[in-house]
Nucleic acid binder design. Structure first.
Lengths: 247, 247
DNA sequence: TAATGTAACTGGTAGTGACCACATTACCAG
DNA sequence: CTGGTAATGTGGTCACTACCAGTTACATTA
């Protein structure tokens, strides 16, 4: 990473500065709770205007790297670890962060007409066909969850078995192949008990407790992209989330 | 709500404008997916600079009310419903949103020395005393969860039984009495089975599945304020969360 | 008709300059 | 020693200006 601002670079200056500051925080060069240089000092240090400085700092405050105190300064947040979007939504990224080897068995991959409850969530007309993927998810080789995804893609937007097996992550395919970058999701979690079929697939006794997650993924323009239902083994999985106040 | 900007008002203009715009969205005056006036138009309409306009729009975009499309305009998000911070963290607010009557039985309220695992999460020295509240939570009169809170308050900051019973919400007391306004929280969820004691309190069979939530609340300066553990009845409770990408 | 270019929008980035609100410190008067 | 006060440094707000970068509609051209 560069240590100075390149005015001829295509990436915006405020973004360049934010990267530099983030780097100093992550490298530990700036200790938690210590003050970073004032906005007027940064103005001199990097030869950019305070407008741009504030834009960079704003984004880092938003992301939880820094916090401001009026009249005192801007300080480094003592955050424990950085949880990103991908780790919150993608099964494989999630497991990797926990130090487990993600794996999957793809049981089905086709165009189907889903239950109306699913179509409703995807804001599609009754009878619409969507792309469906059913997978058994593995952690270090043992089954840990059953995942069923319904994707609101165009009829020409297909995903092949080979692609999914090669990439491992559905979200990577959405990003790279279809240029879809999800930005928000609604999720519910509840407890259920394993049916005989589910129990067999997960290699647990019938009636064992499961964590049921249902999620609807939205694109930038808040168009529903995916409805996904995951049944986690209750004895092997812990769900993590980070809450943040909006105002 | 005012329909114009008052330059002599103590509240910032960008905030006043954001309120006006938010109102138009919530009132349905501006329909979802429709374009709002351009930034140059708003400049004329409200007699404020584009800098300020953008600041107002930025905050509404951040909060999910609007989304921008470069070269096209700024549009109203078709959000289903507004989930706020309180609904995500406060048990009573949460239940009210679901149309259930919140209630509680306070079982204990005292200064205690908690397990070291709790002290670690609160970033306190071993042997420190904290304020502890144990409650049975009710929804429409029936037990739905067991809640144990550990609060990192000063030794002089006490909460009485009367206060808690009158207010009903611990967070309201933190806000109003101690001027503590939590801003972020880390939460984990997992499945457990009810012990005989828990089963008795929740009026369910021993071994019934429970949803276990553990949460650490942080203040604005990321100081841990509260560690709270809640055991929800698996058959009566569904957890909701909204995920949002950071960058 | 179809392709293309262009003008007129939109939001995005950036600089300058000013003043306000709050916190801290040093200093002075009591 | 105590309490007030002024100076100074911090982030917060706001205006005005300029130009860049996508999008769209429409007139022009081949």
């Amino acid at each position: 990473m560069s240590r100075t601002i390149d005015p001829y670079n295509a990436v915006p200056k405020y973004y360049q500065l934010a990267s530099i500051l983030r780097q100093k925080i992550e490298d530990g060069e700036w200790q938690p709770r210590s003050a970073i240089p004032s906005e007027r000092q940064l103005e001199v240090l990097y030869h950019i205007s305070r407008t741009t400085i504030r834009e960079a700092i704003d984004s880092l405050v938003q992301q939880g790297y820094l916090y401001r105190e009026h009249g005192r300064g801007t300080f480094v947040s003592p955050r424990k670890l950085q949880k990103g979007w991908m780790e919150l939504t993608s099964f494989s990224e999630d497991l990797l962060k926990r130090g487990l080897q993600p794996g999957q068995i793809i049981r089905n991959l086709s165009q189907v007409i889903p239950p109306i409850s699913v179509l409703k969530r995807l804001e599609l007309a009754p009878g619409s066909a969507v792309f469906c993927i059913e997978r058994v998810r593995l952690a270090d080789g043992t089954p840990i969850g059953l995942q069923t995804s319904y994707l609101a893609l165009g009829p020409d937007q297909l995903i092949t078995l080979e692609e999914l097996e090669a990439s491992g992550s559905l979200y990577r395919i959405l990003n790279e192949k279809f240029n879809i970058h999800p930005s928000e999701a609604d999720e519910t979690l509840e407890v259920t008990l394993a049916t005989p079929q589910e129990a067999a697939l997960l290699n647990i006794p019938t009636g064992a407790p499961l964590l049921l997650s249902e999620r609807v993924l939205f694109s930038q323009e808040r168009r529903p992209i995916e409805y996904v239902k995951i049944l986690y083994r209750g004895d092997r999985y812990q769900y993590y989330t980070h809450l943040k106040r909006r105002d």
